[in-house]
Design a protein around this nucleic acid. Structure first.
Length: 274
DNA sequence: ACAATATCCTGCGAGC
DNA sequence: TGCTCGCAGGATATTG
């Protein structure tokens, strides 16, 4: 599940390989990931564009191209964007191949097809659902303790819902939401008004630190995530609760429990989290 | 206004 | 062995 640390790693690993390269052609094996514009226009507009820079907003990867075009990519659950300099791996989930002028390429594959690509220019973020509504990115300076406290002030709901809602904070998904709540010592179903200021502080640092650590580990490869070079991350070795149902908590030995919140498997330690 | 569920999709592993 | 079923969860739409 590409969440913020994974998309950040994909961005950085792709950057070294595709920056300043010219896309001469796009091969389409499955057009459903192309969300905007319609395929013929997408094909026409992607051709002969040079990669100018790579950016990230929450879980969105934004590849800035010449002609003021932006290629916005969301990996969904199983999306992968991998660069190949020589022979490439190809299977039935490979949907798109971006061919560069120097005969290298970047492939988009997506088993579950929840991912999407948008090629946009003017008013670009209004064509991409969810992009304009994104909340604070926890890696930006704007994510201060003050702003975080302010954000929580008016909220009434369950803390895990808050963390997963991209309109509040942009970038947390199911894995890191659970990990962050474990480190902060907060049960996932706690109501926000019942969370103390001190706990909110712990939560703030948990978000900042865990995302930072996960980026250092180059992401969590628990399902099929790889970076832009096809390499796995290692943060799966640091997970304290996610997917650890029935295993002893590494802090206190209590068996990790699982509940369902928002249709998502939610893992926590019944002792360490109150 | 909010919480909770259904929806899209495919692979995988459990159980019969 | 091979089938069905439930589960995995990105985000949005819809229902409660």
């Amino acid at each position: 599940m590409p969440e913020l640390p994974e998309v950040e790693t994909i961005k950085e690993s792709l950057k070294e390989n595709i920056i300043f390269k010219k896309i001469i052609d796009l091969e389409v094996f499955c057009s459903s990931p192309i969300k905007y514009p319609e395929l013929p226009e997408f094909l026409k507009n992607i051709r002969n564009k040079k990669v100018k820079s790579l950016d990230r907003k929450g879980k969105f990867l934004i590849i800035k191209l010449s002609g003021n075009y932006n290629l916005v990519v969301h990996m969904g659950m199983t999306g992968q964007l991998v660069y190949y300099a020589s022979q490439s791996y190809f299977d039935r989930h490979t949907h798109l191949i971006f061919n560069f002028e120097d005969e290298t390429r970047m492939q988009f594959s997506d088993i579950r097809k929840f991912g999407g690509l948008w090629l946009v220019r003017k008013d670009w973020n209004k064509f991409v659902p969810g992009l304009k509504e994104l909340g604070i990115d926890p890696l930006q300076e704007e994510f201060s303790m003050e702003n975080f406290q302010k954000l929580l002030e008016k909220k009434k709901g369950i803390i895990k819902y808050f963390l997963l809602n991209q309109k509040n904070l942009a970038g947390l998904g199911n894995i890191y939401a659970d990990e962050v709540l474990f480190r902060a010592g907060i049960k996932p179903e706690r109501l926000i008004p019942h969370i103390s200021t001190q706990e909110r502080e712990k939560l703030y640092y948990a978000i900042k630190n865990i995302l930072g650590e996960a980026i250092k580990s180059r992401g969590t490869s628990v399902v099929n995530y790889t970076d832009g070079n096809g390499n796995q991350g290692s943060y799966q070795n640091n997970l304290m609760v996610y997917k650890r149902l029935g295993k002893p908590c590494q802090n206190c030995g209590t068996l990790i429990d699982r509940i369902v919140l928002g249709g998502r498997g939610t893992y926590f330690c019944p002792t360490c989290q109150v």
